[in-house]
Design a protein around this nucleic acid. Structure first.
Lengths: 182, 182
DNA sequence: TTAAAACATGTAATAAATTACATGATTAAA
DNA sequence: TTTAATCATGTAATTTATTACATGTTTTAA
């Protein structure tokens, strides 16, 4: 029952690696972790406040320039315990992937539907671009093989995202090729 | 801007195939479409009411037995137009897949972490079961090749879900094999 | 025959997520 | 030097989704 509110665990997990500001945490969702979870700053700031009230994080104020105050959040011992409890417990619920495009496909009755080619091509482009972006990330984040050992989880999920997109792109390509000629 | 509230389009798409009750619509999320979108009856009944107020669907009451009243919903012409507008328009936003397990992995630092094997094995089991279930579905829903032509979208998404799970299972297996021996 | 499972429809309360509102500082580039 | 981009933090309003509450019928299996 204590396993809901995933966002709090993600925040704790990130703070467990290093102290970060709310702004830093928000940006983290732009990269790999954004492939598997999304959150805006309007969710993150209130959540940080709650985590602090509950004693899982603390913050110190640092100055950036003359007046700009940043709140640098640190995980506490009890926060770390909460995090490791979440990681250690099973994860039996496979949440459904929301994919609007696939839903649209579902409502297409025949493989002669004139909209199919354009629809599949658009997705092919989008997913190819995403794949290329992820592959670039892998090279920038892990230029050497040694890095993957130190940040194994990061390496795994990036590689998983790449594999997933590779499958998607190949599936789109095959599906396009199997379409009857117009 | 008129492209939010995906649920309404899914309902229209299903009603476009045949008239259905709220209960039927709810059950539809237990199968293939549940792989790509989830909704509970507490969302569906109010949405049907709104769609009717807006003139996109109508309902007739049928009796099941002596007193049990069922509301059988039909799509209207304007509902059908709304549906086809949604399908025809581009789908440029790739929403993030929420995957709690992958997030947990992200926070694991080294490939010597003693929790890794159990975590990966649990997911291997879960995704293998899901894959087996989807493969069975394919056989029951499309026992003959001809069916796939008549319900092409249905065939595509089921086949896509199978491909996706196949990738996931293989990735888990490979990752498990590459783990250092304890 | 009776009890459980499935059918059937709704609302209320809560939680989670997105979008919009609101403000200001610092840095990099034109 | 000024302006745009980025850094930085918050709240409010709205939408979406889940869980809980609430009730009753019909069918299937023990």
């Amino acid at each position: 029952m204590a396993q809901k509110n995933k966002l709090q665990f993600i925040i704790l997990g990130l703070l467990n690696q290093q102290p970060l500001t709310g702004y830093d945490l928000t940006k983290a969702f732009d990269n790999e972790i954004g492939e598997f979870w999304q959150a805006q700053h309007s969710q993150i700031y209130p959540q940080l406040k709650r985590l602090e009230e509950q004693g899982y994080v603390t913050h110190e104020i640092t100055l950036s320039g003359e007046k700009l105050e940043k709140k640098l959040y640190h995980i506490t011992t009890s926060g770390s315990e909460l995090l490791h409890g979440w990681i250690s417990v099973g994860t039996p619920d496979l949440t459904a992937t929301k994919d609007e495009f696939i839903l649209k496909l579902y409502f297409i009755q025949t493989n002669h539907d004139p909209r199919l080619t354009a629809m599949l091509n658009e997705q092919f482009q989008l997913h190819s671009d995403k794949l290329a972006h992820l592959q670039e990330r892998l090279i920038t984040v892990f230029p050497k093989q040694t890095g993957a050992k130190q940040h194994y989880g990061h390496y795994l999920i990036l590689q998983h995202a790449i594999g997933r997109e590779t499958y998607y792109v190949n599936w789109l390509k095959t599906t396009l090729q199997e379409l009857p000629a117009n």
